[in-house]
Design a protein around this nucleic acid. Structure first.
Length: 962
RNA sequence: GCGGAUAUGGCGUAAUCGGUAGCCGCGUCAGACUUAGGAUCUGGUUCCGAGAGGAGUGGGGGUUCGAGUCCCCCUAUCCGCACCA
């Protein structure tokens, strides 16, 4: 009987579904294991061969763990909210829910054909009220908590209220937008509005005027990870900075824990490094530089007079952040960012016009312009001076774009000799440059002769007062100590990470469970969740520029009945408007892995029992492109849930593998420029300039050979095409490009399943190379893998039909089996799935050569292949006479007696000794080693008589003195 | 600019601990079977050389009895961040 995958595969897929083979329950005697894929966004284009790569890899691991006796949670769902469905809705009027539903159905159909072991009873969709109820719930918890640095965790906002009433801000160390200082008396004297305003300063989900990434084309704000080079990741539209009232998550409160947590997880170093860079921790000092107001009356009378009129009075000093406190003796000027609040107060009348012009110019620049001209130096002098607190020197204060508002304090001390940006600025404006660090002790040179600054944090301090002669590291410590003694600054840590902007001016997302009373946000009661997404007449922003939810007729909150009511009922007495923004894509994906543990629970996000049983994700597979997005947000989300006693592990994903991107492999035909009806085979082209390369659909090309008939039918203009062939074939060119429709290089998995079967597709995707590696999709090798499955099938077929001897297993056969068990087990454990496939091929070839027909060998081999090719395994398992699913079988155990290699591998002679390398079992003795050496055929030419002395080094090396 | 990774036949790759480099597959060459084959099977296939033999894991140096693997320098490619003080 032939290997008929087309009949076998659907039959077993039905069997699995009908018998609930992949259904998993929470609990039982078996140890638990959680294998997770990053759930997909169901796009209209369907799956291409890149998507299943990670799913197949994780499915292999999940099935392997299950055969090893684990209770394996292996779920799948859909990240169903997102921009494409909404863009499509704006264009066609089709409701995003309809499009999404359709796309999901298509995804499911495609996934089912590949034979995954997902427990579909646990499916989640982020756009379903039953699911997003808990996204909204978590948002309310974030709104209802603040981060207490002393406790090192999130605490309820109610405890903060009590604290304020008792002692004000005294002794409070909490994450906040702006450091506040007030007494209990002040707190008690404030009205509701003022109190709410103060609390907003501490909430983990807060509403504030923030400089946001505004994308006019998409009509929404975007998070930092959704913007690259000043353009939106989706669509590539320009993004500008804009001050808007937005919801944000205070993820910065968790910055240190997000850094520390990386120590505990088993991720690749490169991904950990990506996250560390993104969080951008840097240690340094905050130092207050006093403004020079009183002295130098002859220089600053204008500024002084101006400042005296000011209300409020100018602050006497301002704060800078530096990672190089050791260079404080080399400060020759200060720079403020154009947004700095101090600029207006300190600028002298003479400089006023210039400064205002500069600030206005800088503010109107788009993010893209600014980033494109990073190298261009610009700035303006304020006319004001500060005083270096250690040298008491007077130093000019400038304003420049190169200092960023969002980092540190938006003000720096400039040390042009030891910072390349300060250096460029000083050179451009002719400001002094003073060397304060040298490579060798006391080796100073004239900075005027320098072509670049000396930025390295190595060497010795020079010209630096009391730290002169110290090493850079010592000088840093000494300066900070002095600054702390003087009370003008302190050690501090800064992070590059910003709070996550959480509002989107879109329709297709989770609504905020928030209504506005007197323009202040209030949460709707938890028990009223979910707050369902309302219907709207249009998906575009409103005429007044409000988000699409502004079109909703029924979108107001009645606080008496606690229900959603018609907008016309708004009276601002008991009926209030609801928030019009929706949540961003990462909201729904930040906690989905927890919901899989208990997906049907309507009383809680997930039960204590469920999370207590599964704990966290043991093994997570997904793309590295989520390194600065989802993987940061999810860790933050999880840490917060941990703080409030929901999650039981601080880190959500213990081990993580990043599957590589699958690129497209495009094919080209070459059309003659001289004769546009003529197509020349690749090998016959003399000069590439004579021909035009045209993308051709890879589905009408096989092993780079063009199917001429199908090419003629492909497009009308090629109907009359003529060809110059080599050996009767038209050979196409090829190139690796992004997989995209426009390049006709999208490989659809369905076509391959139809042609070769799911098992071949699964094996081939693994055989392509290491899962982690990026690689172009290339169908050229798939025949080889398919041929292997046919051989594998035949091996069993010959045995079952009695075409091979039915005698018991020979030693040779057992050796093949046990070496295969060992190798495949090791390969899966270290996630080297491509070599595991090779191992099966070798074993099959060897057993075919041995005409193996014994059940003792063939049965365990079927179990070994289950993770890779479950359909063929299931079929053969039943043909061997078993009942029930092979998925419930036991992973075979390797018998080490069949593994011993006892040949000398590599003899060498030196210094009158000989050294042999021998493969021996780990527990071998010296006597075993000598015997092995003597028995080895190669030893004859080296050993004459008994060895005089043998030095046995465990495992490998034997020195023999002759 | 900073950080991370990678580099092996015509191609995808393998070599798990520093131990005979090139397993497995594609492609290709030769052969068998066949009316035929885009089916199946057998054998060859790193390069140079008729051969004996020699060279060989991006380039250069080092450690070692022994290096694809470890160390230093360089080059190329990919990825992440990028005026982050």
């Amino acid at each position: 009987m032939d290997y008929n995958f087309g009949e076998i595969e659907p039959r077993w897929q039905n069997y699995w579904r009908e018998h609930g083979v992949y259904h998993v329950s929470n609990g039982g005697a078996k140890p638990h294991y959680y294998v997770l894929d990053m759930f997909p966004y169901p796009s209209g284009a369907g799956l291409h061969v890149g998507h299943p790569l990670g799913y197949i890899a994780s499915d292999i691991y999940a099935r392997y763990k299950r055969l090893q006796g684990f209770n394996v949670l292996h779920p799948m769902g859909y990240d169903a909210y997102g921009l494409p469905a909404e863009q499509y809705a704006i264009q066609t009027g089709q409701h995003p829910a309809v499009t999404t539903e359709k796309n999901i159905a298509r995804y499911r159909e495609q996934l089912d054909k590949i034979g995954f072991s997902f427990d579909w009873d646990r499916e989640v969709r982020t756009c379903e009220p039953r699911y997003y109820k808990w996204t909204q719930w978590t948002f309310l918890q974030l709104f209802g908590h603040y981060y207490d640095n002393t406790a090192g965790k999130a605490l309820p906002i109610s405890s903060l209220v009590e604290r304020f009433a008792r002692q004000g801000t005294e002794g409070l160390d909490a994450a906040c937008t702006e450091a506040l200082d007030f007494t209990a008396g002040e707190w008690r004297s404030w009205d509701e509005a003022r109190r709410q305003q103060v609390l907003m300063n501490y909430r983990l989900a807060y509403l504030a005027d923030t400089a946001v990434n505004w994308c006019a084309e998409l009509g929404t704000v975007l998070a930092n990870d959704e913007v690259v080079n000043g353009l939106s990741v989706r669509g590539g539209y320009p993004v500008e900075r804009k001050l808007m009232r937005q919801w944000s998550l205070r993820i910065t409160a968790y910055a240190q824990r997000l850094v520390d947590g990386l120590e505990q997880v088993d991720w690749t170093d490169s991904l950990k490094e990506i996250q560390r860079n993104w969080i951008g921790r840097s240690e340094g000092a905050a130092v207050w530089f006093p403004l020079d107001v009183k002295s130098n009356a002859n220089v600053l009378p204008g500024a002084q007079a101006y400042m005296q009129q000011c209300d409020p009075q100018p602050v006497p000093s301002f704060e800078i952040f530096t990672t190089r406190p050791d260079t404080i003796f080399g400060v020759t000027f200060m720079v403020l960012c154009p947004e700095h609040e101090l600029i207006d107060r300190i600028t002298t009348p003479e400089q006023r016009q210039q400064v205002q012009d500069y600030v206005a110019w800088a503010k109107n620049r788009s993010e893209r312009e600014r980033q494109a001209e990073v190298k261009r130096v610009s700035g303006v002098f304020t006319g004001a001076y500060a005083v270096n607190p250690l040298t008491e020197e007077r130093i000019p204060i400038w304003v420049s774009e190169y200092v960023l508002a969002g980092y540190g304090t938006g003000a720096i001390m400039a040390v042009p000799a030891h910072d390349s940006r300060d250096f460029a600025f000083a050179r451009h404006f002719g400001l002094p440059i003073r060397q304060v660090v040298s490579v060798e002790k006391d080796a100073v040179s004239d900075p005027a002769t320098w072509t670049e600054s000396m930025d390295a944090k190595t060497g010795y301090a020079v010209n630096s007062g009391f730290v002169t002669g110290m090493k850079v590291k010592e000088a840093m410590k000494a300066v900070i100590d002095r600054i702390e003694e003087m009370g003008i600054g302190h050690r501090t840590v800064n992070y590059r990470l910003r709070d996550a902007i959480f509002s989107r001016q879109r329709y297709w997302g989770e609504p905020f469970p928030i209504y506005f009373k007197a323009d202040r946000p209030y949460p709707i009661p938890e028990e009223c969740l979910p707050l369902e997404l309302p219907e709207v007449s249009e998906f575009k922003p409103t005429a007044t520029g409000e988000p699409p939810l502004g079109h909703a007729k029924k979108w107001a909150w009645d606080t008496k009945t606690n229900t959603v009511v018609d907008c016309s009922a708004i009276d601002n007495e008991s009926v209030f408007p609801l928030e019009l923004s929706t949540m961003p894509g990462f909201a729904g994906s930040s906690g989905y892995y927890l919901r899989y543990m208990d997906p049907k629970n309507d009383e809680a996000y997930f039960s204590k029992e469920a999370v207590g049983y599964w704990q966290n994700v043991d093994f997570y597979v997904g793309g590295a492109e989520h390194g600065t997005g989802h993987l940061i947000y999810a860790r933050f989300w999880n840490k917060f849930l941990f703080d409030i006693g929901m999650a039981v592990k601080e880190e959500p994903f213990q081990k993580l593998i990043n599957q590589g991107m699958i690129q497209g492999r495009s094919n080209f035909v070459y059309r003659s420029k001289a004769d546009t009806g003529l197509f020349i085979s690749k090998g016959l082209i003399k000069d590439m300039n004579d021909v035009t390369a045209i993308h051709v659909d890879i589905n009408i090309v096989d092993n780079d050979v063009l199917d001429i008939e199908r090419f003629r039918e492909w497009r009308p203009e090629f109907k009359e095409a003529r060809f110059e062939l080599e050996e009767g074939k038209y050979i196409c060119g090829w190139e690796v490009e992004k997989m995209s429709k426009s390049m006709y290089n999208v490989q659809n998995p369905d076509d391959l399943v139809a042609r070769y079967g799911a098992d071949t597709l699964r094996l081939y995707e693994m055989f392509l190379g290491p899962v982690e590696q990026a690689k172009p999709w290339d169908t050229n090798g798939i025949e080889g893998v398919h041929r292997f499955l046919k051989k594998f099938w035949k091996l069993y077929d010959n045995s079952l039909t009695g075409q091979t001897s039915q005698a018991g297993p020979t030693k040779e056969e057992l050796k093949v089996l046990h070496q295969t068990i060992k190798k495949v087990t090791d390969d899966i454990e270290r996630f080297s799935l491509n070599t595991a496939v090779s191992t099966f091929m070798i074993a099959t070839n060897q057993l075919t050569d041995l005409k193996c027909a014994s059940r003792e060998v063939l049965e365990p081999l079927v179990v070994l292949i289950v993770p890779f090719a479950p359909h063929i395994a299931e079929e053969l398992w039943h043909q061997l006479g078993h009942e029930g699913s092979v998925c419930d079988a036991q992973w075979p155990v390797c018998d080490s007696q069949y593994l011993v290699e006892d040949t000398v591998k590599y003899p060498v002679q030196f210094n009158g000794k000989m050294r042999f390398t021998i493969d021996l079992p780990a527990d071998s003795t010296q006597a075993d080693a000598i015997a092995a050496v003597k028995a080895a055929p190669e030893s004859a030419k080296w050993l004459t008589g008994e060895p005089k002395k043998v030095i046995f080094v465990p495992k490998k090396i034997i020195n023999i003195v002759c």
